[in-house]
Amino acid sequence: MSATFDAVAEIISANTDVSESDIKPESHLMRDLGIDSLAFLDLAFEIDQRFGIQMPVEDWMQSVNQGDVESEEFFVVGSLCRQIDALVAAKVAA
């Protein structure tokens, strides 16, 4: 498991009723872990703070709602970690 996954799993378990052992890279935040939109905002805040980024959640939601991409692109834990890594890398490169 990556350090990003470990950090995200810790954040999810600390801010929801989900046990860390139940969080897998293939877990969908909403469908599998039962995280609702308000709880996701808490996670977004904690992730933004922890990694020093601003996840473009609105853009992600718009892409999903418009049918441009599947929700798995952003809201499966492993995919979310890849998005975070890309945002951190872009920040370092800037």
């Binding site: 977004a44 805040f45 601003q54 473009p56 959640v57 853009d59 939601m61």
Partner: peptide, 9 residues
């Protein structure tokens, strides 16, 4: 204290 995407703290 934090400006998020679509939210603020």
């Amino acid at each position: 204290i934090h400006a998020g995407s679509g939210y603020a703290v």
